[in-house]
Simulated assay, not measured.
Amino acid sequence: MIMANIIKSLYNIRMLDELAEKRTVIHSIHPLMKVMTTLAYLITTVSYDKYAVSSLLPLVFYPVVIIVLAEIPPVPIVKMALAATPFLIGIGILNPLFHHEPAIILSGIQISEGWISFLSIMIKGIFNILAALILIATTGMTGIASALRMLRIPRVFVLQLLLTYRYISVLAEEAVRIWEAYMLRTPGRKAIAFKTWVPCVGRMLMGAYGRARRVYQAMALRGFHGEYNPGDVKGMNTVDFAYCIGWVTFFVLVRYLNFSAQIGAAILGVMK
């Protein structure tokens, strides 16, 4: 089960890298504008009140539109975002225990403020994770790194982010190699024995370190001396600025106009 999760994670990383190579209208937007738009989306999402639920829902429009325009397969991306739900549950699961005040009554069932805040945490977390995954899938880590350097983020942090992202795949590939070698030498077993976990983990880390060292030596031979060089980065044009300004305007309108309440009131008015 653990190895299956590692293989799945490795596949997801490679899938994001492959999606970043697409040529769509979203992929052609300048990386800096996409990073700025994503930051504005994250700030807007977390700025909501801890009991906000319905007012958050219009924000789903952003990831849905980007997924469609960027031709990203929705099911894998949504599954990757939902994989983080155990962490979100761990963050908010205690809220219902400490906040017992009744918030709403739905079909005769009283729902406390704790459950409302818990649901709000889940929605905010999933939206933010989905936005981050979409950014990687439409920009790539190289593009994100170049945008961060344009924002004057210190070089050491950008390099750490970029190399950590690459090193995760190296570590995962080494884990897969050890798993396959162990299974070939112990036919009939479905998992690695507990007593061999320590040497296997040690071998995995040493193997990943060796591969990472060879990668660094190859980079050094090609002229790498600690300075991140994004290569040729295209200049920004009117479409790039319009993309960022348009989305930021939408986020501000959604944040302060409460479209959900207005739509609900309109529906109730028509039903009457």
Score class of each variant (00 low, 15 high):
153 I>Y: 09
130 L>H: 05
81 A>P: 03
214 R>Y: 14
236 M>H: 07
190 K>H: 02
27 H>A: 01
44 T>S: 15
192 I>H: 03
45 T>K: 00
212 A>D: 00
209 Y>H: 13
1 M>S: 05
77 I>P: 04
262 Q>W: 03
124 K>S: 08
202 G>A: 06
133 L>G: 05
245 I>H: 11
158 V>G: 04
147 A>K: 05
140 G>Q: 02
110 Q>Y: 10
80 M>Q: 05
161 L>Y: 13
5 N>P: 02
119 L>D: 06
183 M>S: 11
49 D>T: 14
216 Y>T: 10
16 L>F: 08
242 A>I: 14
200 C>E: 04
4 A>M: 13
69 L>E: 01
61 F>D: 04
150 M>I: 04
104 I>T: 11
141 M>C: 12
246 G>M: 06
8 K>Q: 05
264 G>P: 02
109 I>Q: 12
94 L>T: 07
239 V>L: 14
101 E>N: 11
238 T>P: 03
64 V>K: 04
39 L>Y: 09
212 A>V: 02
77 I>R: 03
222 R>C: 12
46 V>L: 10
115 W>Q: 07
104 I>N: 00
53 V>C: 07
146 S>M: 05
271 M>I: 14
40 A>H: 07
130 L>D: 00
167 Y>H: 14
229 N>D: 11
128 N>M: 15
221 L>D: 04
162 L>H: 14
206 M>Q: 12
91 I>F: 12
252 V>W: 01
96 P>A: 01
216 Y>P: 07
42 L>Y: 02
181 A>F: 05
190 K>T: 08
197 W>E: 00
197 W>S: 02
36 M>G: 13
199 P>G: 06
251 F>W: 00
237 N>L: 11
256 Y>C: 14
106 L>T: 12
114 G>N: 13
172 A>V: 03
72 I>C: 06
174 E>T: 14
222 R>T: 13
51 Y>M: 11
245 I>T: 10
229 N>Q: 05
10 L>S: 15
19 L>I: 03
108 G>Y: 13
14 R>V: 04
268 L>V: 12
9 S>A: 15
109 I>C: 02
266 A>C: 10
